[in-house]
Amino acid sequence: MDVTEVLLPGVGLRYEFTNHRGERVGVVARRTGDFELVVYAGEDPDEGRPVLELNSEEADTVAEILGAPRIAERFADLTKEVPGLVSGQVRVGAGSAYDGRPLGATRARTQTGASIVAVVRGEDVIASPTPQEVLRGGDVLVVIGTHEGITGVARIVQG
């Protein structure tokens, strides 16, 4: 697809392209981070009809929505891309020394290098738990790290 880039001195850039239905579309990217979407559809070919105005936060969200399938793929590839990185699940034993103590007390990451990214408790999932999160017997920890790291975490919380 051909995208024409036009400099708007002092303002930013304008991108212009034709979509599959033959409509001319313009995107004004301002230095401030705001965006403006226009179409050239009227009888005057040089006049852009404003369609949308987005501030930088909104533009980010729209870009995320439009690029979502690709982003999901990238996450799936993450463990493939980093050799040696695996995820695993570790069960907190009922008689564990950390039953009823905060996650931070295990010092799991300091000792093993592996990160606990979620705690599964029955039906609930606590994503990105803080060190203050109190563990209970029966919790399942989702761990990302090396094989040895995950085994290390298992040894700590099961012991």
Binding site: L8, V11, R14, G26, V28, E36, E47, G48
Partner: peptide, 13 residues
């Protein structure tokens, strides 16, 4: 709302 118009780069230049 004329930033998208085709004459605008000329004006700004």
């Amino acid at each position: 709302r004329r930033l998208g118009n085709r004459e605008t780069p000329a004006v700004l230049s």
